[in-house]
Design a protein around this nucleic acid. Structure first.
Lengths: 234, 234
DNA sequence: CGGAAGGTTGACTTTCTTCAATTCCTGTGG
DNA sequence: CCACAGGAATTGAAGAAAGTCAACCTTCCG
């Protein structure tokens, strides 16, 4: 899904399963020097701040979120190792980004993006692939948020996380709190907790501790995750 | 929002308030001949079909939708005049597109996109602006779908539609049915109807007929539309 | 004129949230 | 190393809100 072919050659693209690497066609845009480090809970950028850079997560987990007028918080994205961060706006950030764990990032200059891509056709192409994929992926989340049952939504979330994490075994490291998860899914922490309990009692997952899950039956989880198990609507 | 400057010159971009026009830097990619016409309810493309083209709406309204496993339908997008259509996938369409009214489209070849943009820096840049804007806009809908109250969501929908329609007066032509609206907002038609009644009784809108609304008090509508009027959640 | 589809309204049910109480971790200091 | 404190997580009971079902009304088109 992530890579595409050009002249029969594999295009690594901007995001990659090797988070610590920057593809050669992008290295010219990376800001030189050591990757930047953020402690747990540190703010990476603030909502409303001018966008000067974007980042690639080397290690750790980042939450991209906003506090809504009523005081409620919504998390737009969890950025995992290998994924990009900081494209949540055109001129200024429309969300803030915070480190869920300790985080290491490589940084790219945003203002040089256009001139850089005019000179680097490979970079321009991998950027187009990346944006098109992301654009095409957004409606899936629309569906989850719109036609969600909490169970479907949580199950999908777990499968999504384990797919995006490198070790595709049954182990799932949940770095974020239940509150983070609920603010990402548009639910309450209580509901998330209840759903996890149901899934555990049904034997689909095992909860080693609050931040370590085992996905015991991915087949059944996938079934549960497929939207609209029951409801009618319309 | 739509246009950006390059060398002090205004970049019209790919989408524009003049739906019948194709910006000069894009004309080379447009498939020559008459714009294509679709009757009301006609299918423009099918879910799962290979993506060969994308379109710009000249006139009419298009719904981009998918029928979910349980039989429920979800509408990912309403494409209005001047807006683009057919970017709902990388290799194949992940949604189908249907004409809500009679629809006229101009068509672009998808396979020539990469080579074309390598030759046309202006086209490449307006494409980047477009995709970045769309990418940055997606989270707003996440919030609406996730933290929605039906009232907030419907009010926002009305304001969004009237903004995207040319005549920015208080008149709003609703081409789609209540079912379309509900499938777009992740609600039921009954709920949409109830909310409209509430807004009407509160004097914020007037319902001339089922497809013609007057937004009488956009200020108050905007207030209502701002997410999280009341709820706590976390 | 009549029928079918779309739209509205009402009563009822289900579901999630809310509020509250309890338990479980984690990290800190004695 | 253990005790303790504070936050995180779970669980339960009650309440609110949207969905479901059903009836009725309206509009549009043959």
């Amino acid at each position: 899904m992530q890579s595409s072919t050009l002249d029969g050659r594999l295009l690594p693209g901007l995001t990659s399963s090797f988070p610590f690497m920057v593809a050669p066609e992008w290295s010219g845009l990376a800001i030189p020097g050591q990757p930047s480090r953020f402690l747990c809970s540190a703010e990476i950028y603030a909502e409303g701040s001018k966008i000067r850079q974007f980042h690639k997560v080397v290690s750790g987990t980042v939450r991209v979120c906003r506090v809504l007028p009523g005081g409620r918080r919504f998390i737009a994205q969890f950025a995992l190792p290998g994924e990009l961060l900081g494209l949540d706006g055109v001129e200024e950030h429309r969300f803030s980004a915070e480190a869920v764990t300790e985080v290491v990032l490589v940084t790219f200059a945003r203002k040089d993006l256009d001139t850089y891509m005019d000179q680097e056709p490979l970079a321009a192409q991998s950027w187009r692939i990346f944006t098109l994929e992301r654009l095409a992926a957004a409606p899936d989340r629309f569906i989850l948020l719109g036609c969600r049952s909490p169970t479907e939504h949580v199950a999908h979330f777990l499968l999504d996380l384990v797919t995006r994490s490198r070790p595709v075994c049954h182990l799932l490291e949940l770095n974020m709190s239940r509150y983070d998860i609920s603010d990402y899914l548009g639910l309450t922490a209580e509901t998330v907790s209840r759903v996890l309990t149901v899934l555990r009692k049904a034997g689909m997952i095992a909860i080693e501790d609050n931040h370590t899950l085992h996905l015991l039956d991915c087949g059944r989880l996938t079934e549960v995750a497929s939207v609209s198990s029951i409801p009618a609507g319309r």
